[in-house]
C-alpha cells in the first residue's frame, strides 16, 4: 500500500493537508459517461428503427456502419470495436453510478418510505433511474456481448431471426423500456445538476425541460416498440428460412 493512499484513507487528506480531487473527477466522469451513452442511445434507437422504412433502408444503414464506404462489402469488425468502446464507457458509468445506490437495507428502507410519504416527482424519478440502471447491468451487458461476438448477424433477416426465432424479443423489450427511461431521466438530471439552460428563470426552464424530456421518452418508446414489433413480424415470416441472409434485389454477391 502506498504511503499516499494510507495517509489519505486515515486522515481524509493528503500529506499537504489537501482533500482528494478524486470525488470531483468521479462526479464529472459519471456525468460525462452518462452523456456519451445518452447521446449514443439517441442515435442508436433512430438507426435501428430504420426497419420502419423498409428492409432495404435497414440493410443500407447496417452496411454503412460496417464501413462499406471504406472497405468493399464492409466488415463487422467496425461494429465489434464500436460495441467494445461503448462497453468500456458503460462499465465505467455503472461503476461510478453505483456509489449513489442505497447500500444497505436501512438506507433503502429510509429512502423508499420517505419517497412514498413525500410523493415528490423528481425523487420518484430517481427510483426509476436506479431501478432501470440496475436492470441495465444485465440487459445492457447481454446486448453488448451479443454485438461483440455476433456482429456479423446484423441485418433485416439476421436481426429479426435473433429477435423472433432465437427468442431475444423479451430481452429487447425490457432493454428498450429500461434504456429509454434511464436515459430520459438521466439527461433531465444532467441538465438540472449542472444548471444547463437555466436562463433567467430556472424554475420555468426546469418545467420546460420536464416537458421536452417526457416528449422525447414517449417518442423513443414508440419508435422502439414499433421497430421491435416490425422485427418480430419479419422474424415470424422468415422462420422457415432461419439463417438465410437478406439480399438486395438483383444482388448475388453481397449478403448482410
Amino acid at each position: 500500500m502506498s504511503q499516499k493512499g494510507t495517509i489519505e484513507s486515515l486522515t481524509g487528506k493528503n500529506s499537504q493537508k489537501k482533500k482528494s480531487r478524486i470525488p470531483a473527477k468521479m462526479d464529472f466522469l459519471q456525468s460525462a459517461t452518462g452523456a456519451i451513452l445518452a447521446l449514443f442511445i439517441t442515435f442508436h434507437l433512430l438507426f435501428e428503427s430504420s426497419i420502419l422504412l423498409g428492409k432495404e433502408s435497414m440493410y443500407h444503414l447496417t452496411k454503412f456502419f460496417e464501413g462499406e464506404f471504406l472497405i468493399e462489402g464492409g466488415s463487422p469488425l467496425f461494429i465489434v470495436f464500436l460495441a467494445l468502446g461503448i462497453s468500456v464507457v458503460f462499465i465505467l458509468h455503472a461503476l461510478l453510478a453505483m456509489r449513489k445506490f442505497p447500500s444497505s437495507y436501512r438506507e433503502y428502507q429510509r429512502f423508499r418510505t420517505h419517497a412514498k410519504l413525500m410523493g415528490h416527482q423528481d425523487t420518484n424519478l430517481w427510483f426509476i433511474q436506479i431501478s432501470s440502471g440496475f436492470m441495465l447491468f444485465f440487459l445492457g451487458s447481454i446486448h453488448l456481448f451479443t454485438m461483440m461476438t455476433q456482429a456479423q448477424n446484423i441485418g433485416p433477416f439476421a436481426s429479426s431471426d435473433r429477435i423472433y426465432s432465437d427468442m431475444a424479443w423479451p430481452m429487447y423489450l425490457m432493454l428498450l423500456v429500461s434504456v429509454v427511461l434511464h436515459a430520459g431521466v438521466g439527461v433531465y438530471r444532467l441538465i438540472v445538476k449542472w444548471g444547463w439552460f437555466d436562463g433567467s428563470d430556472p424554475r420555468a426552464s426546469r418545467r420546460r425541460h420536464q416537458k421536452i424530456i417526457k416528449g422525447a421518452v414517449l417518442f423513443y418508446l414508440l419508435i422502439g416498440l414499433f421497430s421491435l414489433a416490425t422485427y418480430i413480424k419479419i422474424g415470424y415470416e422468415h422462420q422457415a428460412d432461419y439463417g438465410e441472409r437478406y439480399h438486395l434485389k438483383g444482388e448475388v454477391t453481397h449478403a448482410d
Binding site: K100, M118, H120, T123, R189, W194, G195, D198, R206
Partner: peptide
C-alpha cells in the same frame, strides 16, 4: 443527486438548484 426536493419544498422559495449547480461547476 439533484433530486430537487430541497428547492421544491423550501418555504422561502430559494433558488437552491441553481446555486448548487453553480458551486458544483
Amino acid at each position: 443527486m439533484s433530486l430537487m426536493a430541497c428547492e421544491d419544498h423550501c418555504p422561502k422559495n430559494l433558488s437552491l438548484q441553481s446555486k448548487i449547480a453553480y458551486m458544483r461547476r
